[in-house]
């Protein structure tokens, strides 16, 4: 579902951005012929929403950006120039964050976020990266997943199977603070006819 929201957002964004006729087509699914729509889809991943990276073996692909997905980003949109200390994070309006990952002693905001600037992520090497490079943070532990993700065996590609390869960031599917998928009721199942009488 999250990816669907993201896609919708993406399409709206594409519509706003490109203006010329793409607007209505992209958002209202059922209004244009297949081929025109496919072109819209192929063009619907504007360069500004993805960043090119080189995966293992030098395979070039693009990753969806994280920051445009975050409501109220950048932090200064709420916090002004003061910045926000991680100590007050949970109490001051980020109460929805249910931090259960990683497990154990490392479960602390500062394990991943820079204490003085939570919009920056802190790698084990000491290097800091933006939220758009969340995959680099995740890959530090989940290296097998990261390799599969770069190759195509993990994660999701956006919209098309051909042309530019744009994939979702780790955070495109997983909640970084609670990455496991929740239990929930499934969508309606099959109706198997009278199994017996």
């Amino acid at each position: 579902m999250r990816s669907a929201h993201w896609l919708a957002f993406l399409l709206v964004f594409a519509g706003c951005r490109f203006g010329e006729g793409a607007r209505a087509q992209g958002v209202r699914e059922h209004s244009v012929p297949a081929d025109a729509r496919a072109r819209t889809y192929l063009e619907a991943v504007p360069a500004e929403l993805a960043q090119g990276i080189s995966g293992p073996g030098g395979r070039y692909f693009e990753v969806q950006l994280r920051t445009p997905q975050i409501q109220g980003f950048p932090c200064s949109s709420c916090h002004g120039d003061r910045g926000a200390g991680s100590e007050v994070l949970v109490r001051s309006g980020h109460g929805s964050i249910d931090l259960i990952h990683p497990r154990g002693a490392a479960r602390d905001c500062r394990t991943c976020h820079l204490p003085r600037d939570p919009a920056m992520l802190k790698l084990l090497t000491g290097e800091t990266v933006t939220l758009d490079h969340a995959y680099r943070l995740c890959a530090q532990c989940h290296f097998a997943e990261a390799e599969a993700w770069a190759g195509g065996g993990h994660g999701k590609r956006v919209a098309t199977w051909e042309g530019r390869r744009v994939v979702l960031n780790c955070t495109g599917c997983h909640n970084p603070h609670n990455p496991a998928f929740p239990k929930r009721l499934p969508r309606p199942g099959p109706s198997i006819p009278r199994r017996s009488r």
């Binding site: 496919a38 889809y41 999701k156 919209a159 098309t160 042309g163 979702l168």
Partner: peptide, 20 residues
């Protein structure tokens, strides 16, 4: 038309892989 099948696009867990 170059798009992914609906099931691949809809899968929330990325269990479905499609391609050439």
């Amino acid at each position: 038309a170059g798009r992914l099948p609906a099931c691949v696009e809809a899968c929330p867990t990325g269990a479905r892989v499609f391609g050439n």
